[in-house]
Amino acid sequence: MANIAMQRIRREFKEVVRSDEQSIKLELQEDNVLSLTGYITGPEKTPYEGGRFHVQITIPETYPFNPPIVKFTTKLWHPNISSQTGVICLDILKDQWAAAMTLRIVLLSLQALLSAAEPDDPQDAVVANQYKTKHSLFQQTARFWAQTFAGAPGPLNPDFQKKIDKFLEVAPRADRHTAIQQLSNFDWNIDKAIEDVYKSD
């Protein structure tokens, strides 16, 4: 079984390397064919534009008859991706997987997911709720995350910056990541975000 998986991955790897698509990339992790890193660039006209996002790809022994296990290692603000763990909710990585699909298709599908979220089938309920009820705030937050974690260009939102600094003043034990996560979770309402941190302590 693993034989078919190895063969497939080698060929798929070549396919992605050879193709001149700039927006996706695939790398082997330490010579182990069953563990790879993928990169996708944020699609144009989305808050993710210009960002470079890493995904960790684990190939099961039963590949390609079972889907690869894929999750984001770059932090990302998106309704179908967990803002905490990077776990992805995408049908082709679950029951809609077909043996004839490839890692290239997976990466392109992830890119498509960044362009068109499915807030009604969320992985992260907090993000999905913000997406549906405060869409412009969602876009600003997603942009801020892309700039902070994925190297997307442009000046950072000064209002968000100020709130992060204030948050870190009041909760000195928290780090910057926690501050961003907390504030984003509470729609950048600093009082609620801080209150929640102390509640969970």
Binding site: M1, I4, T62, F65, N66, A98, A99, A100
Partner: peptide
């Protein structure tokens, strides 16, 4: 190989085309 995986996961009458 595909059928082996499917049966191993308890599927039988619901096994569909790989495409």
């Amino acid at each position: 190989a595909f059928l082996e995986v499917q049966i191993g996961q308890g599927r039988s009458t619901e096994i569909a085309c790989m495409s």
